[in-house]
Design a protein around this nucleic acid. Structure first.
Length: 593
RNA sequence: GGUGGCAUAGCUCAGCUGGAUAGAGCACCUGCCUUCUAAGCAGGCGGUCCUAGGUUCGAAUCCUAGUGCCAUCACCA
C-alpha cells in the first residue's frame, strides 16, 4: 500500500479517536527541505471540522501516529504543519519491491484505446521548427498515454491536395528545367519547397507589374496570371486530368521521401496515415443529413452554414455555394471515418497549434450537435507557436528554421563539445557520429518538451541551445555516468541484484528513493495533462538528486559491502527510470559520453 | 470590437490545481578534479509573482476589473 493511503487511514482514525469526528479527507504534501521530516500533514483544513488549536491538533495526531505506526518514527509541528519522519525501513522495503521491476511506473496497456494525430504537414514545403514542436509533442504524448495504460494509435492526415501544391507544381513546370531530387542531389521536400518560393517570387513580380500598369493592388493580387493558372490547375486536378495528376503524384512522391528522412532522424513514427486527397469529399453526405435534421441551414446562394451564436460563437460555413468542401467539411468527415476505422477508440487527440483553437471548438461542437456521442471525447492538444526574435516564421519569405538544418546543427555542436572534452578515445568515427546525433537531438528535444505546451517558445538561432544545466545532455550525462559505475561494479564482482539488507539510509539515499517513489504518479499526471513537460521536470529533479549523492558519497569506494551494493542498486534503478522517462520524451540515452 | 491563451529573477522556465521564508537553469562572483566521467557538485548575487480590488485561517494559484503581448473571428487550409 502507498504511504499516503496508510497515513490517510491512520490520521482519520486519530481524529476520530481523539475528537470523535470523521474527516472527509486529509491533505498531504512532501515536507519542505528546510524542515525535518518526509511527509507533512496539513492541519489547517481540519479546522473546518475539528475545533481547536492547529498546533495542538498536530501534536496529538503526531503522537498517535508514532504510537500506532511503525513507519512513523518521529514528528514535529510547525504552525499548522505536522511533519512526519518516515522510517528508513519503509523506504528500504519500497525499494526492494521496485528494484527488479522492469516495468516500474508503467501501467500495462488496456483496451481503452485512443487515437493521437500529429504532424499533418502540407506537402509543398519542407518541415521547419514549428513542425518539430508538433512532432515531438504528439509523439511524446502518445508514448506517455501508452505508458499510462492506454492503447494508442498514432496517425496523421497529410494535406496533399490544394492550391499550395499546385503552386509548386506550376513553378516547377515553368522554371524547373527537369530538375529532380536525383539529378540535383536535393532532398525531395526541399526541391518542391524551392518551387513554392519561386512561385511566390514570380507572383509578386506579376502583381507589382500590374500595379505599375495602374491596376488596384487588391485586384492585381487576385488577377495575377500565374495565380489564375494555379487555380486552373487545381480545377484540372479535381477533374482528374491525367497529366496534372501524374505531376502531382510525382512531386508528392519526392516530398514523402524527404519527409520520411526527416521523421526518421527526428525519431517519430505513425501507425497509419490518411491523405486529404482521399478524405476531402468525406463529410459532404453528413452535411446533407445535417440539413435534414436542422443542424445546418442553406442560404439563398446555396452555401451551407451552422449557427453557433447560442453557444457564444459565430455562424460558420460548412459547404461552399458551389457545393465544394471546406476545411471543416473535411474534418467532420475525417473524424467520422476514424471512428469507423478504429471501432475500439474511446477518444481522439488532435495535436495542432493554438492558432486553430477556434476551429476545433467549432468542429467538436458540430460533431456533438450531429449527435455523435464520442464528440465529448475529443481533445485539441493545442500548443503555442515557435517564434523567432524577428517574429513569426514564414515559409514563403524564407524566414524559417529548417528542421533538417537544425538537427544537423545540433549534432555538430554536440560533436565539437565532445571533441573538446575528449572522453571518447576508443570510439570509432561511426560510433562518435551516432553519439553526437543522440546528444544533439537530446538537447533539442528536451529544450522544446520541457516547456508547457500551451506556452509560446521564442527560439533564438543565434544563441545555441544549452548543453548544461536543465538540459537533455545533462541528464544523458548522468545516465552515462551511472552506466560507467555499473560496468566497474561488474568488473569488481559487486553483487547488487539481491534485496538489500541495509537497515539505515544516508539522507541522500532516502531523498533519492522518495523521488523514485513518485514516478508512477508522475506518468499519470503527465497523461492527464497531455504534458511531456511534467516528465521532463521530474527527470531533472531525479538527476539532480542523484548527482548530489554522487558527489557527496563514494559508491564503489564504500567499504561496507552491503551499503556499496545498495548504492549500486540505487544507481541502476535511477538509470532505468531515466531511460524510461526519456523514452517517453523520445530521447535516447548513451552508455558513455 | 467579440472570443480564447499567456504574463513569476537580467534571460529561459518550474511551482504538485489554495499552504510554511516563491524554486531551478543560463549569465555574473567564490570554492571543489593524484580517488566511481567536472556536460558535474557546494555556495553567493538577483523577486512589486503585470496592476487594483475581492473571497479566507492562508492567494503566484480562485473571482472581478484593468494593462500588455499573441492568436482567432474568411465561400484559405
Amino acid at each position: 500500500m502507498k504511504i499516503q493511503e496508510v497515513l490517510q487511514e491512520k490520521v482519520t482514525e486519530a481524529i476520530n479517536a481523539i475528537y470523535g469526528i470523521t474527516l472527509p479527507s486529509v491533505e498531504f504534501q512532501p515536507t519542505r527541505k528546510d524542515f525535518e521530516g518526509d511527509v507533512t500533514v496539513v492541519v489547517f483544513p481540519m479546522l473546518r471540522h475539528v475545533k481547536g488549536n492547529p498546533v495542538q491538533i498536530g501534536e496529538q495526531v503526531g503522537a498517535y501516529l508514532v504510537k500506532e505506526l511503525d513507519i512513523v518514527t518521529s514528528f514535529n509541528v510547525v504552525k499548522g504543519f505536522l511533519n512526519l519522519v518516515i522510517s528508513d525501513a519503509f523506504y528500504l522495503s519500497f525499494f526492494n519491491k521496485i528494484q527488479n521491476d522492469t516495468a516500474f511506473g508503467l501501467v500495462a496497456p488496456s483496451d481503452d484505446a485512443i487515437l493521437v494525430e500529429y504532424s499533418s504537414p502540407n506537402t509543398n514545403k519542407p518541415l521547419h521548427l514549428g513542425h518539430i514542436r508538433n512532432n515531438l509533442l504528439g509523439y511524446s504524448v502518445a508514448e506517455i498515454l501508452k505508458a499510462s495504460g492506454k492503447k494508442v494509435y498514432k496517425t496523421q492526415i497529410i494535406n496533399d491536395r490544394g492550391i499550395h501544391i499546385c503552386k509548386s507544381m506550376l513553378a516547377w513546370q515553368r522554371f524547373g528545367n527537369g530538375e529532380t531530387p536525383e539529378n540535383t542531389g536535393l532532398k525531395g521536400d526541399k526541391l518542391v519547397g524551392n518551387y513554392y518560393v519561386a512561385f511566390d517570387k514570380a507572383y509578386k513580380e506579376e502583381v507589382a507589374k500590374l500595379v505599375d500598369d495602374g491596376v488596384e493592388k487588391k485586384q492585381a493580387e487576385k488577377e495575377a496570371p500565374i495565380l489564375l493558372e494555379a487555380q486552373q490547375m487545381l480545377l484540372k486536378w479535381e477533374a482528374g486530368d491525367a497529366d496534372v495528376v501524374a505531376l502531382w503524384k510525382k512531386m508528392n512522391g519526392w516530398v514523402y521521401k524527404g519527409f520520411d528522412t526527416t521523421y526518421k532522424n527526428l525519431g517519430v513514427d505513425f501507425d497509419s496515415y490518411l491523405y486529404e486527397s482521399d478524405t476531402y469529399l468525406l463529410g459532404k453526405d453528413v452535411v446533407a443529413d445535417g440539413i435534414k435534421n436542422g443542424v445546418f441551414y442553406k442560404k439563398e446562394d446555396g452555401s451551407v452554414w451552422i449557427d453557433l451564436t447560442d453557444e457564444g460563437l459565430d455562424e460558420k460555413i460548412v459547404l461552399r455555394s458551389d457545393g465544394t468542401a471546406v476545411y471543416m467539411t473535411q474534418d467532420i468527415g475525417t473524424a467520422i471515418q476514424r471512428v469507423k476505422d478504429h471501432s475500439d477508440i474511446n477518444g481522439m487527440v488532435y495535436t495542432v497549434g493554438n492558432e486553430q483553437d477556434y476551429h476545433f471548438r467549432v468542429l467538436f461542437l458540430i460533431l456533438k450537435k450531429l449527435g455523435f456521442t464520442w464528440a465529448d471525447k475529443l481533445f485539441h492538444l493545442s500548443y503555442g507557436m515557435v517564434d523567432l526574435p524577428s517574429g513569426k516564421m514564414k515559409s514563403r519569405e524564407g524566414t524559417v528554421v529548417d528542421a533538417d538544418d537544425l538537427m544537423e546543427q545540433m549534432t555538430q555542436t554536440a560533436g565539437s563539445i565532445s571533441e573538446e572534452l575528449g572522453k571518447l578515445e576508443n570510439y570509432s568515427e561511426e560510433e562518435k557520429q551516432s553519439l553526437y546525433k543522440m546528444i544533439g537531438l537530446g538537447a533539442l528535444k528536451y529544450y522544446i518538451l520541457k516547456v508547457d505546451p500551451k506556452k509560446r517558445i521564442l527560439f533564438n538561432p543565434e544563441e545555441s541551445v544549452d548543453f548544461q544545466g536543465n538540459t537533455g545532455p545533462f541528464i544523458q550525462y548522468t545516465y552515462a555516468r551511472i552506466q560507467s559505475i555499473l560496468r566497474k561494479a561488474k568488473d569488481t564482482n559487486v553483487v547488487w541484484e539481491n534485496e538489500t539488507t541495509v537497515v539505515a539510509l544516508h539522507p541522500k539515499e532516502k531523498e533519492l528513493i522518495k523521488q523514485l517513489e513518485v514516478f508512477p504518479d508522475t506518468i499519470q499526471l503527465a497523461a492527464e495533462n497531455y504534458s511531456p513537460a511534467v516528465i521532463a521536470n521530474f527527470t531533472y529533479d531525479l538527476v539532480r538528486e542523484f548527482n548530489s549523492l554522487y558527489q557527496q558519497v563514494s559508491i564503489l569506494g564504500e567499504t561496507d559491502e552491503d551499503k556499496k551494493a545498495l548504492r549500486v542498486q540505487l544507481s541502476y534503478k535511477v538509470g532505468e527510470v531515466i531511460k524510461t522517462a526519456f523514452r517517453l520524451l523520445g530521447i535516447s540515452v548513451p552508455e558513455r559520453m
